[in-house]
Simulated assay, not measured.
Amino acid sequence: MLNQVIKTAKEAGQKILEFYDTEIEVITKDDDSPLTKADLAAHHIIVDALKEIDPETPVISEESGIPDYQERKDWNKFWLVDPLDGTKEFIKKNGEFTVNIALIENEKPVLGVVYVPAFDVMYYGEESIGSYKKEGERSAQKLNSPEFKAPGSAKIVVSRSHGDDTTAKKLKTLNIEVSEEVPSGSSIKFCLVAEGKADLYPRLGPTMEWDTAAADAVYRFSTNNGVKFSPLKYNKKTMKNPYFLLGINEYIDVENL
């Protein structure tokens, strides 16, 4: 099934690129976030494919709306999709946008595929095989990066669209000194931690479950020994994530720093 999901993510990414070199028309959604024809085209490709690959399992996509909690609260398994994560980066044409497809079981991602179409880079992870990065036609490389242990000096990923100067100050209260900031867009930030290009991803701002699920799987399984700790849970009532600190092997309440 993983190979079919990888193929689907690539198909959706190639469709997105058809819009990338044109004048991008932007619609503003009710929550003030941007929407483009590329989002919707990728959404239809992915949802249609998942219905064929796994017809018994429900699908939630950012562009399909959130089913009522009473309907989904007892779901043990569902697909969670962001057809175009990083729409702002897509509009800016900086390449840092992704296709995210995750399978959630019992509040955790058990499979995740993150495709970066502008650079033809595929990240994928599943507990039984671990996590991998595949660049173009090159062979896939297994990801195995250590978890950060405080106190210490850390290279952190920061959002290219939502960065501010308070993160380093807040991390300092945890005895973590920021040695370098690595700006990035979309769910690529998780993947940079998974492949060891950064130590931590502190997110002190809002995200939704579909923003993080697929890349969270890539991070969790980017080890040769068990599963890494992630503070995130899925299928919550609002589907909003709390603020979080990814890359460290313990839960830290960063909302109250």
Rank of each mutant, 00 (worst) to 15 (best):
residue 232 L to Q: 08
residue 246 L to S: 11
residue 22 T to D: 14
residue 253 D to I: 07
residue 224 N to Y: 09
residue 229 F to L: 12
residue 17 L to P: 01
residue 249 N to E: 11
residue 66 I to D: 07
residue 12 A to L: 04
residue 189 K to Q: 13
residue 80 L to K: 03
residue 246 L to T: 05
residue 183 P to K: 06
residue 17 L to W: 00
residue 69 Y to I: 04
residue 178 V to M: 08
residue 103 L to N: 04
residue 156 I to E: 04
residue 204 L to T: 02
residue 218 V to F: 08
residue 234 Y to F: 14
residue 136 G to L: 07
residue 110 V to H: 00
residue 34 P to V: 05
residue 15 K to P: 01
residue 154 A to Q: 06
residue 154 A to D: 04
residue 39 D to C: 05
residue 1 M to D: 13
residue 235 N to I: 04
residue 20 Y to R: 03
residue 146 P to W: 08
residue 176 I to G: 02
residue 101 I to V: 10
residue 135 E to Y: 11
residue 220 R to G: 09
residue 247 G to L: 11
residue 120 D to V: 01
residue 251 Y to R: 11
residue 152 G to H: 09
residue 97 F to R: 00
residue 110 V to M: 04
residue 162 H to I: 07
residue 72 R to P: 09
residue 240 K to S: 12
residue 171 L to Y: 06
residue 25 E to R: 14
residue 184 S to H: 05
residue 226 G to V: 14
residue 232 L to A: 10
residue 137 E to F: 10
residue 211 D to R: 00
residue 103 L to D: 03
residue 157 V to R: 00
residue 186 S to P: 02
residue 11 E to H: 09
residue 223 T to M: 14
residue 185 G to N: 01
residue 6 I to A: 10
residue 49 A to T: 12
residue 38 A to Y: 03
residue 49 A to H: 09
residue 120 D to K: 01
residue 42 A to Q: 05
residue 193 V to I: 13
residue 14 Q to H: 13
residue 74 D to V: 10
residue 49 A to R: 14
residue 71 E to N: 06
residue 85 D to K: 00
residue 221 F to Q: 03
residue 237 K to M: 13
residue 256 N to K: 13
residue 111 L to F: 01
residue 168 A to T: 09
residue 33 S to A: 05
residue 39 D to Q: 01
residue 15 K to A: 13
residue 193 V to Q: 01
residue 253 D to P: 06
residue 76 N to I: 12
residue 10 K to R: 13
residue 223 T to I: 13
residue 172 K to R: 15
residue 242 P to F: 01
residue 151 P to K: 12
residue 112 G to E: 04
residue 39 D to T: 01
residue 135 E to G: 10
residue 165 D to W: 15
residue 119 F to E: 06
residue 139 S to W: 13
residue 165 D to Q: 15
residue 228 K to E: 04
residue 48 D to G: 13
residue 213 A to H: 03
residue 164 D to W: 09
residue 229 F to V: 05
residue 158 V to E: 00
residue 17 L to R: 01
residue 214 A to S: 10
residue 166 T to W: 12
residue 226 G to W: 12
residue 141 Q to M: 10
residue 154 A to I: 05
residue 185 G to Y: 00
residue 256 N to E: 11
residue 142 K to L: 06
residue 255 E to T: 07
residue 147 E to V: 12
residue 98 T to S: 06
residue 204 L to D: 05
residue 173 T to S: 15
residue 160 R to N: 11
residue 56 E to P: 14
residue 212 T to C: 12
residue 127 E to A: 10
residue 206 P to V: 15
residue 241 N to H: 12
residue 91 I to M: 04
residue 241 N to T: 10
residue 127 E to T: 09
residue 159 S to I: 00
residue 224 N to S: 15
residue 116 V to T: 06
residue 159 S to D: 03
residue 171 L to F: 11
residue 115 Y to W: 01
residue 136 G to P: 10
residue 76 N to D: 14
residue 150 A to R: 13
residue 187 S to H: 05
residue 180 E to Y: 10
residue 113 V to A: 08
residue 32 D to H: 15
residue 168 A to I: 08
residue 67 P to Q: 02
residue 112 G to T: 04
residue 35 L to T: 07
residue 163 G to R: 15
residue 165 D to E: 15
residue 226 G to K: 14
residue 228 K to C: 08
residue 88 K to F: 00
residue 113 V to D: 00
residue 86 G to N: 03
